[in-house]
Design a protein around this nucleic acid. Sequence first.
DNA 1: ACACTTATTTAGAACCATTATAAACTGCAA
DNA 2: TTGCAGTTTATAATGGTTCTAAATAAGTGT
Lengths: 132, 132
Amino acid sequence: MKYIEKLRNSGLRPTKQRLQICEVLFDTERTFHFTINQLEQRIKDKIDNKISLATIYNTVHAFEKKGYLKQIPLNSNQTYFDTNVTDHHHFYDLKKEKLIDLENSDVGPINIKRKINGKKIKSIEVLVKLDD
Amino acid sequence: MKYIEKLRNSGLRPTKQRLQICEVLFDTERTFHFTINQLEQRIKDKIDNKISLATIYNTVHAFEKKGYLKQIPLNSNQTYFDTNVTDHHHFYDLKKEKLIDLENSDVGPINIKRKINGKKIKSIEVLVKLDD
DNA sequence: ACACTTATTTAGAACCATTATAAACTGCAA
DNA sequence: TTGCAGTTTATAATGGTTCTAAATAAGTGT
């Protein structure tokens, strides 16, 4: 399995549950956005055994910490994650409550002129809200 | 009172509670960021009578709908609001969990090249996360 | 001023995403 | 195979936010 070493290399034991979640998250044509509840549903659909909700939370947070997932800054009652961990931005369709990836070529370079003493920029995220 | 007509003009009855919340939010030297709990505390400090938490939620949402407050897109268990409703962006200090305003002059113009059919851009918000 | 309608406030309950708990289980190194 | 640390699990607890329904206050017309 290709995910076994990936997990071992990050210090995560390649358990059955984690490997199955890897398949759901990363064996896809395209990257995608999800909430924990949506992921839970996908797992139910694609996998025979049950994975507890607590494990899903644990795994998603472990993967996020390792950089395999990103949280998307958004005001919602649910946390959104992204399997696309490259630097990129988002449209948010307010009506449909849906996120749409903006390719980096869709957004001109972002120039932050101000510095904060002793702080480094870790990420720059742009959210473009869409109306009708 | 200067807030009475402001509220009436937006179709909100100028109740005692709303006027007091206006004072806490808008009678300040500087704009500021807050969570509902932080606002509740400020109200307790500045005002004699009690305002119920439900009223604070109601009022903040009413003010946001009228454009007197903005929500800040951020992944946190609490919702952050901003009394600065002009177009501007934010640093987020991950260590201190603190927001810092970026003046518009601190960020070069943001050029969104992609269009979505029939949708208009309502806002563009940039979040710059800071590390040590 | 009065009566009437409608908006607002309120305490408390309900909701629900997320996190904590603690016991059972599993991977893995010795 | 044994032991230990890491992981999974069901369930409870937490906590921010929203809902509810009754009490109160504001606006309107008379």
